[in-house]
């Protein structure tokens, strides 16, 4: 389905996004020798490569998740030359350390953006547009039905909901990805309402992030030693997979909320039977996606995941040279399985 043109600097192969000239892959989904990694989510940084290159702030989580790997780091904006191809990493605003990877060779510039969002969330390094000839983009929420509100409005809603739960003596149970969404929610919580407890999968990531010198609000790991009544009127932050797990059962009475871009859709809210759905995503919405592409001034766009086919059609109509590529990226999955696989399975059973 994707057209690979003979002179393409980056090509889509069975293993990932490949730069033949430099002999490296970007976010490969099969084991390779040299991998350049946009960010630490499981569908972008996978296990089994011989060497990794990521930003300084992305590396700790990648190391934590993948264990004993050979990883080098690079500062945002700094170039390195690999076999004549110039590579640099630029903030993608998706999660802490997330990057768009720029590759340039003889005036032909490509940007592989991984996952990204334009809104400055105050915790991830804010997105910077990078001019290029070819832009490789996601389209997780690439339809006009997705239109995010400013995050402060969502945080206000979340805090309001927590406050009224607290008044009723309920535990506030909110879910978001362990990596990224959880820290973003944490940063938006009004800690004067009560205490914040965390699921082990979330707390493990929090520890890694605190260790790299980033401040997060105080949290307490849920454990068996904590009397159940201590949770009353407080908040528990957990990954999506914890909903309806045995682990969740001890918090009662509780009110469940889910923070995800998919909560924009009524069907998704209803199916999860959560009391509240908060539309909060670490991916661009429709407007920002179009803005981002315009700002790159790229004449060619390759769409890697999400509504690839539809969005490609739209871009073509806008006069761009656009195509869809087949990858194994998943973007934001409501159940968090694809993006978080290993944290989920590592979660404590208590």
């Amino acid at each position: 389905m994707q057209t690979t043109r003979t002179n393409d600097l980056l090509r889509f192969t069975e293993k990932g996004i490949y730069c033949e000239k430099a002999g490296i892959y970007i976010d490969p989904w099969r084991p390779v020798d040299k991998a350049l990694i946009t960010h630490g989510h499981a569908d972008h940084s996978r296990w089994g490569h011989k060497s990794y290159l990521a930003t300084e702030s992305a590396a700790p989580v990648i190391k934590y998740r993948l264990g004993n790997i050979k990883i080098q780091t690079i500062a945002y904006g700094k170039s390195i030359n690999i076999n004549g191809v110039e590579f640099s990493f630029h903030p993608a605003g998706h999660i802490i350390g997330s990057a768009q990877i720029r590759a340039s060779y003889k005036g032909d510039t490509w940007v592989a953006s991984g996952d990204f969002k334009l809104e400055d969330d105050g915790i991830s390094e804010a997105f910077e547009p990078v001019k290029c000839n070819t832009f490789i983009t996601e389209s997780t929420f690439g339809l006009p039905i997705y239109d995010w509100k400013p995050q402060q409005e969502i945080f206000d809603d979340i805090n309001q909901w927590w406050r009224s739960n607290a008044a009723e003596g309920k535990v506030t149970f909110i879910t978001g990805y362990s990596l990224g969404k959880a820290q973003r929610i944490l940063n938006g919580l009004d800690t004067s309402i009560g205490k914040i407890y965390t699921h082990g999968a979330v707390e493990n990531i929090n520890e890694v992030i605190r260790n790299q010198g980033i401040k997060l609000p105080e949290t307490t790991r849920v454990s068996q030693e904590i009397p159940v009544k201590d949770y009353t009127s407080n908040l528990v932050l957990a990954p999506p997979g914890a909903i309806n797990s045995a682990w969740m059962k001890k918090f009662k009475p509780l009110s469940i909320g889910i923070a995800s871009g998919w909560m924009a859709l009524r069907g998704a809210r209803r199916r999860r039977a959560a009391e509240r759905g908060f539309v909060l995503s670490d991916h661009v919405d429709w407007k920002d996606l179009n803005t981002a592409i315009k700002e790159t001034e790229a004449e060619r766009v390759i769409v890697t995941h999400g509504y690839t086919k539809i969005y490609t059609e739209y871009l073509k109509e806008q006069g761009l040279d656009a195509e869809a590529a087949q990858t194994e990226f998943t973007g934001e999955s409501l159940d968090g399985e694809a993006t978080e696989s290993n944290e989920e399975s590592k979660s404590p059973t208590t």
Partner: peptide
């Protein structure tokens, strides 16, 4: 474009909701 609206409708599964979105 109308076709994109229709595609969105297909994803949402509900016309009233698609329009509101």
């Amino acid at each position: 474009p109308l076709w994109l609206f229709e595609e969105s409708y297909h994803v949402v599964g509900d016309l009233a909701e698609t329009i509101a979105l």
